[in-house]
Amino acid sequence: MFDIRMNEHGDVVLSGRLDAAQTEKALEVLNKITKSVMVDFKELDYISSAGLGVLLATQKRLSQSGNRLKLINMNSHIKDVFHFARFDMIFEIQ
């Protein structure tokens, strides 16, 4: 089960598993973002290259207006995937 929502602070909160079957659901929310926001991975258990793709597309779009995603609270497995993909070079990760 994957879920994506905005919390009361305007952060994007991801939960569950962001796999190739969930990219449209993720993009429905991410495509509405127009300013820099934090994306909270605390409740996200899993992400594949399909999930990386939607984040990359959002980061590219936001960067055209000087904005960006800041990713927080990743578990160690997801952090490893970002590292192997060198996505830690194109996202700010805390």
């Binding site: 594949s48 290259s49 399909a50 990386l52 793709g53 990359l56 590219k60 960067s63 194109i90």
Partner: peptide, 11 residues
């Protein structure tokens, strides 16, 4: 760079 990256083949 960010602008040049894509995920084709990344998986």
């Amino acid at each position: 760079s960010l602008a040049e990256r894509n995920v084709g083949g990344l998986g």
